[in-house]
């Protein structure tokens, strides 16, 4: 039954993806800035002052920007369905290859942040709910406030100053692939992970705490206590699974957000993930790459939400056959 449910939900994502592709395609075309000029080295009158009409026209043709937009879209969609997101006008590398080359870095960072965030958030969120108004609760509240109030880039810069510049323990930027040097990989990923993990944790703690407090008032909890179960079982078996039902949805959303990468964090740490690629591609008006990355991130979001739905169905027996 779960399999059939999964398949049905998967089919349901198709129209969503189609609509997203149309929106992404048109939105990217709406980004102001003349990509022909950018290709010709014109940016804010910085260096180039003479561009000939002939070259402009030649570049226009080369970039294919004069074709009707529906034609451009149809061509793009046709290729995208075959896994070809086009080739950047700036270089000869297929957009898909660039994305795939940079995806691991983003995924590792997202996973590390999620793991760190979850390891912090779940015990702290639950403890805060169970021991309301104690120091644990205040600590959790502090983490939440800190995470929500302080901007990520500030935390990032402070961490860099402390651990990079003053203590010299960790590198301040960059990335090493785990297969190249695992220790260096960990050293590079630590600071961005802390920043993103903290942000993630703040969201999750807030959610878990509130939801847990609500769950604790439920009748089934009294039943569990009436059975003589230990508090540990009551909390971590009975309440936890129910609370996770709601939390999974939030997690799914947060995780998909992380999978899209964090532009500011990747930028500060010169971390070669896909969202920094997106930022640079927007600067370069490299629309093929922008479209590719955005549609890819959209796919990730849809997919993560889909996974969250399936997980929700796994956890929540009530939804399965509906």
């Amino acid at each position: 039954m779960l399999i059939r449910y999964s398949l049905r939900r998967l089919l349901e994502t198709i129209p969503t993806l189609f609509i997203i592709s149309v929106i992404v395609f048109s939105l990217v075309l709406l980004i102001p800035g003349d990509r022909v000029l950018v290709m010709l080295g014109y940016s804010g009158g910085d260096i180039a002052d003479v561009i000939s009409k002939e070259v402009y026209a030649a570049m226009e043709i080369r970039l294919g920007v004069n074709d009707p937009i529906p034609l451009q879209y149809a061509r793009w969609l046709g290729r995208a369905l075959q896994g070809d997101l086009g080739t950047s006008p700036l270089h000869a590398i297929p957009v898909m290859d660039i994305i795939l080359a940079r995806l691991p870095a983003t995924i590792y960072l997202a996973l590390a942040s999620i793991i760190l965030g979850t390891l912090v958030a779940i015990p702290l969120g639950v403890a805060a709910a169970v021991k309301q108004n104690t120091w644990v609760d205040h600590l959790a509240n502090g983490v939440v406030l800190f995470g929500l109030v302080t901007p990520g880039f500030w935390v990032a810069l402070m961490l860099v100053l402390l651990f990079g510049v003053y203590l010299g323990w960790l590198p301040t930027f960059g990335y090493t692939a785990p297969q190249d040097d695992f220790v260096e990989f960990l050293r590079h990923i630590t600071l961005p992970t802390i920043v993103l993990g903290l942000d993630f944790a703040a969201n999750v703690i807030r959610f878990i705490r509130t939801d847990f407090i609500e769950q604790m008032r439920e009748d089934y909890v009294r039943t569990a206590r009436a059975k003589g179960l230990s508090e540990r079982l009551v909390i971590w078996k009975h309440i936890f699974k129910n609370s996770m039902l709601a939390t999974v949805t939030v997690l799914g959303f947060d995780i998909s957000r992380l999978m899209g990468g964090s532009t500011i964090i990747e930028s500060i740490f010169a971390y070669p993930g896909i969202s920094f690629l997106l930022l640079q591609s927007i600067f370069n008006r490299d629309f093929a790459t922008v479209q590719g990355v955005v549609i890819f991130i959209a796919l990730m979001v849809v997919f993560m939400n889909y996974l969250a739905d399936i997980l929700y169905a796994l956890l929540n027996p009530r939804i399965r056959y509906e």
Binding site: Y220, T223, R225, G228, K241, N242, L315
Partner: peptide
């Protein structure tokens, strides 16, 4: 509790844990 004294409640719809 649950071994020597047990209790059943008024609301059967909500007294059981929906997740197990």
């Amino acid at each position: 509790r649950g071994q020597r004294i047990s209790m059943i409640f008024q609301e059967p719809m909500t007294s059981l844990n929906p997740a197990y």
